[in-house]
Design a protein around this nucleic acid. Sequence first.
DNA 1: CAAAATTAATCAAACGATTGATTGATTATA
DNA 2: TATAATCAATCAATCGTTTGATTAATTTTG
Lengths: 209, 209
Amino acid sequence: MEKEKIDKKDHILDVAEKVFSELGFDGASTRMISGEAGVNMAMLNYYFGSKEGLFIAVFERKITSFQDILQNIGNDESMSSWDKMDAYIEIYGNKVVSNNCFQKLLYQEMGMNRRTDISDKLRSILMINVGEVKKILLEGIAKGEFKKDIDVEMAIATIYGTKNFIINTPLMSTPMLGYDIQDEKVMDEQLKPRIKAYMKNLLKAYILN
Amino acid sequence: MEKEKIDKKDHILDVAEKVFSELGFDGASTRMISGEAGVNMAMLNYYFGSKEGLFIAVFERKITSFQDILQNIGNDESMSSWDKMDAYIEIYGNKVVSNNCFQKLLYQEMGMNRRTDISDKLRSILMINVGEVKKILLEGIAKGEFKKDIDVEMAIATIYGTKNFIINTPLMSTPMLGYDIQDEKVMDEQLKPRIKAYMKNLLKAYILN
DNA sequence: CAAAATTAATCAAACGATTGATTGATTATA
DNA sequence: TATAATCAATCAATCGTTTGATTAATTTTG
């Protein structure tokens, strides 16, 4: 049945996402993934063509939801530039914290220099979001709403970097913040509001007049 | 000769550091490293016992220089808290940008969940620096020099995170910043002063009264 | 509607390639 | 000459992938 087939593929992608994010692309073997998913090893190639195809499929499943997060915000004429930044941080904070497993995998792979076809694909997608944030910041500067001497690119690096540090380096962020980053409930109830509030205050202090 | 042997081992470690940081532990093969270093494959095992031994040796070579970066600053009674932060950013910016290859490898490894013996060692060393920065920030708050409602831990995450994003994700940071992150000369002449100036301005706006 | 034909899904087994590591012989050094 | 360094060759293990056979599902046909 078509429905069950999709469910099975989805289940494989769930497992693959988890195993990849824990061990990286090379560290995760097809035997391990198929074993943990409870399917025959050949099924991975049958469904996804290759290990790399499976890897890409993991990303493509999530990609769509990331692409049009900002579309609406950026083009809203009625919002002030700061309200747009505020709205972006809000959405970004929600999306990112609840997809931390995937986020880790994403930026882990972006750090590698090989497989430029995959990395390039991921980069071009992420750069769309970067472009949207940049547009908001530049608009705010042009309207005189933001300071005119802010380092736009660095500010963007701070937004993504602060989040990445917390998500990708739990060995440091967990003892730093005082609660377990891996714990989903803690993430949602404590980290999410905290990182949102902090990010808004930090940016407010740096970019607002 | 003892001297040449050390030089050769050092050369292997240089190459290994570079290849590991580009491809990760699993992605880098011993054949690749030995080939690029211009030595026989068996030499790696002869000198370092195993691939993992080589990996550890890469870290242990650098570890010592990381341990005493901050000691002097923190205990200087004559400096204001902000001057200490300023001095730290200055030193950190220099150290980090010129060791970007190793930094990338370091935080790549910190993100992985396996080989906990290495990761734990690295973490405990890095956490010393974190503790020193935290001390400066708390001191500034206590003295009324800094705002009392700043999120200390998040601010530290921003310092490390912003740097890491630029260093570890050159595929994004290079097009964002408009110049090649991999280029050593560019790093030194353009990125280093820029990241220092930005970091100081950002923190000044967020923590200073 | 039921039997036959076709397609899709699943599996155990094996493939060639590559991995990290080791060997025993050879060369250089002290 | 004895010790250290270097090498080509080879090891077993694991990798991702493919195969050919088998079962399940779907479609076609009489």
